[in-house]
Design a protein around this nucleic acid. Structure first.
Lengths: 221, 221
DNA sequence: AACTTCATTACGGTTTCCCGGAATCGCTTA
DNA sequence: TAAGCGATTCCGGGAAACCGTAATGAAGTT
């Protein structure tokens, strides 16, 4: 089994549960941290000491508090670790079950498992660790269709950027000017209108407000 | 101390943590459920058996699964319990730290404590139980300004209804007609415009899309 | 009854958004 | 080189939203 495991989660009681199942799996070298920055430092230190971690189990959202963090979220942590320590296995253990978010995480950072916190969360996590140890990918039943479902697969970064800009209060014309300045194409007002129209059809949104609201609900923005 | 306590939370590991601190507090009659409906039934049964619970510790959000629920969220549970068993002490233990949501919960259902899940969550929960036992109100430091801060206090149900309607894709005119039908006043298009304008000023939103996005972010809708 | 006050409603002009058609550009293929 | 095709851009008319102002209505006050 894994020789050295790190668990990152800011809720003490979650950690407790994870430690319990870890023990059942025969993992006897498990450490826990409550901040992503701590996780990063430990993992780097492990490398320097020639005693690297071989598994990270991490949450996605960490509460902010007085400590300012370089990596405020699990996603930030994963991003940097995937670059610097590509051999480390990463299991995400999060409450997040919105398909778009899960989909982006899996495709962008190519994590080894995605487990949803929930009633069966610990069981699934246990299974996930075993699967990942065998070099297989694991995903919770609950969000497994994040991979297969094609319905919203043809939404690219431009669409997301557009919706984010709208949600932040910019008018379509302002966005157009902004894109022109930043050399983002397409940038014409007409193109923006057309893109929004496409999105509205895809999500059956009746107007732009509705579209942005849906985008927020499904975790797209 | 409390004689009979019920803990409602769908995450097993959270429950584990809560049970631990309960033991430390000298609570030796603590039960746990993973669904709000189960919580409701147990509490009602306690009443019938003349052996009522005197404390409920509950989460707010419960994941949906195959079991269809009459009370899908903690808020639904609290709502009905406050009517039917006003003597029961209720402690909310949730990850939710958005002020508007906390504020509404406290003012509408007059719960006995609000504790944020987080790094210090269990300690605070322990403190909360003690305070509530002494008939005092408890709220986590993190969201304590939900009570004092007046900035958004003059937002009423009408405003929320309006924003919800917008987020669901209705045009202002459609909302006006809908309000007229349902005898909700004010209902004229002009009034709706005015109200939206007031909200935009309060939240420094530059347009309606922005306003709805902010409303979603802060948990107003 | 006349007056004040405040919320609601009505209205008109301006801006933004919405939507379709047509022209242009860039790339591929014949 | 020409033709074809999709993406982008330009344009124009109509709808919805935006914004200020005026009219109406329902209290309570003098």
């Amino acid at each position: 089994m894994f020789k050295k495991v790190l668990v990152a989660d800011d809720l003490g009681s979650i950690n407790l549960g994870v430690l319990t199942i870890a023990k059942n799996l025969g993992l006897n070298n498990v450490e826990r941290v409550e901040y992503c920055d701590d996780a990063y430092l430990r993992i780097k230190k492990g490398l320097l000491d020639n005693d690297p971690y071989d598994l990270l189990i991490t949450d996605l959202s960490f509460k902010e508090d007085h400590r300012t963090q370089k990596y405020p979220s699990g996603e930030d942590l994963i991003k940097v670790l995937r670059k610097e320590t590509p051999n480390l296995k990463i299991v995400v253990y999060s409450i997040e079950d919105r398909l778009q978010k899960v989909r982006r995480l899996i495709s962008q950072y190519n994590i080894n498992a995605y487990v949803c916190k929930g009633r069966k969360g610990l069981e699934e996590l246990s299974k996930a660790v075993e699967e990942v140890y065998e070099d297989r990918f694991f995903i919770s039943e609950q969000v497994s269709h994040a991979l297969s479902n094609k319905t919203t697969l043809d939404i690219d970064d431009f669409d997301v950027l557009l919706l984010r800009n709208l949600a932040s209060g910019k008018s379509q014309e302002e966005i157009s000017l902004d894109f022109k300045q930043k050399n983002i194409t397409p940038s014409s007002l007409s193109s923006i209108e057309k893109r929004l129209n496409k999105l509205k059809i895809q999500f059956s949104a009746s107007n732009t407000i509705h579209l942005v609201a849906i985008g927020k609900d499904i975790g797209l923005i």
